[in-house]
Design a binder for these strands. Structure first.
Lengths: 326, 326
DNA sequence: TTGCATTTCGTGTTCGTACACGGAAAAAAT
DNA sequence: ATTTTTTCCGTGTACGAACACGAAATGCAA
């Protein structure tokens, strides 16, 4: 009998001894069948700007695992927030609290707002796992995502490898860089690869583009690219297709481009040889694994690994077809 | 009620209509709990020569999935055969038949012997999935493994990329090449990448080494390497460490080596920069997935995808650490 | 129509666990 | 010692589907 308190200490110990002796394994099937208790999970991800946006992908993995687990009475309620508005994060966090789920997966995109959310989760004893980026030692059940610094190293190595000569431009397509923690980490890793491995014959430059609503951002970039003899571009997130469009528009056929994530348009550029490598982090798998962590801990009551760094996949024209299916 | 025949056609249709209307989903928990039927699976893999051998890895994945499924009454009985002796394949195939499992995963290493095995499996209606290599249209439930030809293409691209000048040697470490179908495929893909993408300024050579019991094989290789100005080596299977030892022994520090699979010793050479890239096919995941295919089909009675090409992972010093865990 | 074989269908029990409930035992109060 | 209260523990029913078994319905032949 498991911990409902109404047992004498002596018999309890006796029973536990027998349990050990017989190596008793509770039958999960019978258990969940009998309990008939529904489990509700919630996710809080950034809202993807389009149906092709990056954040659809973790959601796909989430949905898949939930479907597999619906036999166990596990259900999901997804929430999203606007990447540009911390307020929407707070609002949706509150919505989540109001439905009182047994477990949560979320992306701690805004640090301060996430921390206050975490406070409330701890009060209510609701376990949570981070996805994509993480806050260290915040009491999370675990983290599912990539090691951004190391993936930056990989990008550095690859871009250097394919670049006979010329300088490099690191491009951040993002607003509010301070919060986009992993973009900064990737940049660091990228720079450090050159510091460690090369006696720096190349120059590295960094630029931030926050507004891509029209093509005016290109003008300034074109300028630097010519002035600084840029021959390689590293895009720190999934907006590689912007760089692809740029290269295509101006017909720079010796420009080498590298970036992140297998969005449809990115893959198109990869196949057209306008982008040479894409670094991929299997976002669907991350979504899948994050739910699985909750399930194992909450339903199966098993211990789980805390950190779950997904692989840093190097994707190129020749192997991309084997990454697209899930 | 599901197909035990003793129902009137009319009521059957009525019932099925209601089933549809209510969108009835059978409860797998209750179902397997009530049936209490044990499922026995069997695997037939090549016997790994040591505890570090390649074929331990699929077995790890198999074991993991089996453990997760032991609640469902799924058990496994593993068999192995000697890669050098078709007879041992036959012997173990017969052993498998004698225990009469509900499903089988095996590597169709010897074509002829596999085909006669398949005949018998079909007679008994035992579903089977291929792992690692496949025989097309043999009535298998599915295939889990890599597209060898395409992985050869990837190797070609990478080796070309890192090689400023010089010629290339393709090394097969294997006996009985005729049966090792995927090694040939990899070689083909490798050659074809150069044919398609390069106006061949490089020469490509191929060699087979069947006996590595002592180091005498090296003598002849050293000879060709010098004569032919070999600067790059592609090992078509997991025996990359042999090439690594060679390079280390003779101190060729401009030799670039590329090969397959994350064996412990291969990774060591990778970290020492004596091997530049390893192509990896997630063998543990393959084992895991192959069992999962059997489970879904046999226990859950769901349809499954036939082909399951695993990704062609490009592994280098910088990202290897994120591939080792499973 | 009757008797018998065959087909079709409903019911009861079972799988291993959860949880509620009531009774026995122990402790406390009178 | 008796009653009341509290603590502890055994038993019964339920979860949803599988399967066996027997009853009912039907078909068939005489």
């Amino acid at each position: 009998m498991h911990d409902r308190g109404e047992v004498a200490e002596i018999t309890k110990r006796k029973i536990l001894q027998i349990v050990k002796d017989l190596n008793y394994q509770p039958n999960l099937l019978a258990s969940t069948l009998a309990s008939k208790k529904p489990y509700l999970f919630a996710t809080l991800f950034p809202a993807p700007p389009s149906s092709d946006g990056y954040w659809n992908k973790p959601a796909i993995g989430v949905k898949k695992r939930i479907q597999e687990l619906n036999q166990f009475g596990v259900d999901i309620q997804p929430f999203t927030f606007n990447q540009a508005e911390p307020k929407s994060f707070i609002e949706n966090a509150e919505k989540i609290l109001s439905i009182n789920p047994e477990g949560i997966v979320f992306a701690p995109f805004f640090k301060k707002e996430s921390e206050s959310f975490i406070e409330q989760l701890k009060e209510r004893n609701i376990p949570f796992v981070f996805i994509d980026s993480e806050i260290k030692l915040a009491g999370q059940l675990g983290y599912v995502g990539q090691n951004s610094y190391q993936s930056g190293m990989v990008s550095g190595k690859l871009l250097d490898l394919i670049l006979p000569e010329g300088n490099i431009l690191v491009m951040h397509f993002a607003k509010e860089m301070d919060n986009q923690n992993h973009l900064v980490q990737r940049e660091k890793g990228f720079y450090n690869w050159f510091k460690k491995n090369k006696q720096t014959t190349r120059q590295l430059y960094t630029t931030e583009i926050s507004d891509t609503s029209s093509d005016i951002w290109m003008d300034q970039i074109v300028n630097t690219i010519h002035k600084k003899n840029i021959k390689g571009i590293f895009v720190t997130n999934s907006k590689v297709y912007y760089a692809g469009r740029l290269v295509e528009k101006f017909g720079w056929d010796d420009m080498k481009v590298i970036g992140h994530d297998l969005l449809r348009e990115n893959v198109l550029f990869l196949k057209k040889n306008l982008v040479q490598f894409l670094i991929c982090q299997r976002p669907e798998e991350q979504g899948y694994n994050s739910i699985n962590k909750l399930f194992k801990y909450i339903v199966q009551k098993k211990g789980i690994a805390k950190e779950n760094y997904t692989s840093i996949d190097i994707v190129t024209k020749e192997n991309v077809d084997f990454y697209k299916e899930f």
